[in-house]
Design a protein around this nucleic acid. Sequence first.
RNA 1: GCCCCCUUGGCGGAAUGGUAGACGCAAGGGACUUAAAAUCCCUCGGCCUUUGGCCGUGCCGGUUCGAGUCCGGCAGGGGGCACCA
Length: 873
Amino acid sequence: MATERYNPREAEPKWQKAWSEAKLFETDNSDPRPKYYVLEMFPYPSGRIHIGHTRNYTMGDVVARHRRALGYSVLHPMGWDAFGMPAENAAMQNKVHPGKWTYDNIDTMREQLKLMGLSIDWSREFATCDVDYYHRQQMLFVDFLEKDLVYRKQSKVNWDPEDMTVLANEQVIDGRGWRSGALVEQRELTQWFFRITKFSQDLLDSLETLTEWPEKVRVMQRNWIGRSEGLQLRWELLAGTAPEGESELEVYTTRPDTIFGASFMAIAADHPLAKKAAASNPDLAAFCEECRRHGTSVAELETAEKKGFDTGIRVVHPFDPDWTLPVYVANFVLMDYGTGAIFGCPSGDQRDLDFANKYGLPVIPVVMPADGDAATFQVTEEAYVDDGVMINSRFLDGMTPDAAFEEVASRLEAASMDGRPQAARKVQFRLRDWGISRQRYWGCPIPVIHCEECGVVPVPKADLPVKLPDDIDFEKPGNPLDRHPTWRNVACPTCGKPAKRETDTMDTFVDSSWYFARFTAPKADDPTDPKAANEWLPVDQYIGGIEHAILHLLYSRFFTRAMRETDHLDLAEPFKGLFTQGMVVHETYRTGSGAKGQWHAPSEVRLDDSGGKRRAVVIATGEEAEIGSLEKMSKSKKNTIGPEEITQSYGADTARWFMLSDSPPDRDVEWSDRGAEGAHRFVQRIWRVVTGAAANIAPGDAGDAGDESLAMRKAAHKALKAVGDDFEKLGFNRAIARVHELVNQIAPTVEKAAAGSDSDKAAAHEALSILVQLIAPVMPHLAEECWQALGYEKMVAETAWPVFDPALVTEDTVTLPVQINGKRRGEIIVAKDADKDSVERSALAADFVIHHLGGASPKKVIVVPNRIVNIVA
RNA sequence: GCCCCCUUGGCGGAAUGGUAGACGCAAGGGACUUAAAAUCCCUCGGCCUUUGGCCGUGCCGGUUCGAGUCCGGCAGGGGGCACCA
């Protein structure tokens, strides 16, 4: 029968409209059904959606549609991470207001997303730059301030003197500003910090409960938090060598067991003792200055050689008053970790060893392998950092390092110095408080006022929001808020005298640290409706890129805790399930080389693989382009594909199907036209199979169907079971393979059934209905069109997920492979769940077994029920 | 340097310790067609003496009746962290 080809350009807008009019995806908080919250990391409105975004959203959409069919009340919202620098850059380059640029982009991107047919509750949409949103963020800030979860302190920043702006570390390239090229200075500014370290231990411990997170992400967070147990230990300065008024040096160590291997002390250039010593020593002062300068660039840090400067100060060993050690200022000691001072044990630490070898300091091995020889064990080029046994360490000799740690810690805790214990055990974290001040315009204003009389005063909630002024100019460098003629000036809320607004805005990571909570009640007057937040949260399935494995997720975990302390919700962990998806990559095409090199978009080249070699030819010029490696889609390499390019030709369903097939969702997928063509062929195939039979089949009792029809029903029910499991585990590629398999199995039978008995027709109708429901989460438009062809009146998007019949997914007999000595020699067919003895008898009676055994009797027969038989000859 | 992950046909990838290569892409052959597209059918890891057999999941070893899967070592590739004492 001749059938019309399926036309996505007609069908897709039609169904999108139908869903929208039926408000199928708008979620009511009062819906009594069990709740399921699926969320994809919201996009930055950079200008255009590319196909990589849509893979992420498609995954979430499959989960959302599947859960909805399973009877859940599903929350699946979308919004925009809309503050940030690109808008300001655009403002400077194109003289367009950052707000206009952002909202224009959002409009474009929303339309692009809508083409994909995502089942999103658009009624909850917001952008973080909406006054309504940042208003509530300011309320949170004020609440945090009250609970001492926000504070101000001096902190170093990278300052670009030409652009008069603060730079993030990644904007500093070779010590210069990425835009201006000016030498970056380190400046001390008073900045706002969130007290994330208050929760260090909890953020670490609680990782254990996040069993639905990738292990990789948990490891990364654990390392980032960086807990260590050690000893804070005070060393007495040798009288006569110390600067005026200094009598001790406190260090932090995780290896107190190696204290007899100490051969020097090293302190940071910014350490108070270093500053004091430098005051009377110009050479030392110069060295300290050099250390500070090197702090700016990551690249320099990586290659930096260990360098030190002997201050002339000496300390006395805590266990031997006659043993004194030199104090160096060293470039590898950080002021803001521990106490900014260490003791160096060269034999047990590679950095210390490098340092000692450079400055001719002693290297005393104090730990050796358990089977080593203390008399000959030496450390020269490589420090010994493993477990073992203590040597050269007086009363510690023979102990394990762990026992020695305990011994040293207990003795020094008991020892007194200046009336206080000489040492204290201390847990130290690598995690630092989160600096959120940004000297920029396009961000959430920090709602405080600086008054000469009253100090720092939070803006009263009644006076919120502090709105960004619209009349700004980007003609001059620096923060437009700072030089705005009137915006800064305000009366102090406490005393009424003239005061100044804070001109810093918040890090955009703040915006994304609680948007998931706002989605649960996006119109609430308060930041959240605690009832809605508690009912919806945690997000059941969060989906996003691995690039946010640390900061965004950690900040969100902090925010959830901070919002609990301020009574905005009542939970600690915002994301129950986390999935990190791979990227969509595409090969690149390039002509010329070096500075003259030029990238070409996929649409600009023609591919040709005749003669066994793939070649790319630039259509406009006929020039041959070099085919480059698979890379993340990026504007600069022009290897991006927009959703429209696909929807205009093949339709959204094809794109959705293709992006989820083949590659597992956590790996990268290569976008290729051939793959997309293949997916589109399958779309058409389903349409043909369904509509070819639809007119001649009808629902009914399939109980009397013939063997072929029964096989078709079994195939459908087995696929239903498997695909449901796969969707739940986000195994989209496997689910898609199963659907292919199902179509391969039933396509021939369906045609025959359409000309068969009523039972056969019912069987075909049932199998096709299941098929359509299985594809519906991935190809929702095609599914609706097919569903209608099958005679249903309700849409498939509002139809419950079918339930498989257990009787149809099990077989009476099972084919067992038979191995002889672990090699497969044949197979036997036995009754399902047959007892081991009868299986063994059948196996031994099989021709091929008798042949292979050659009359010998087997030594052993292993029968794994319903799995395999292995005969050991 | 430290930590983590990965390695299976021409390609993407399947495979609760139990028939390796499901499914798809690409390729080759055939049918239909005036022709093309579309569609349908067949072949598709390697080797051999081809109704059968041998080898085969980066490499070397181990555990096991049985290893792609578990353990130890090595190699290659990727990712994260950045001197954290």
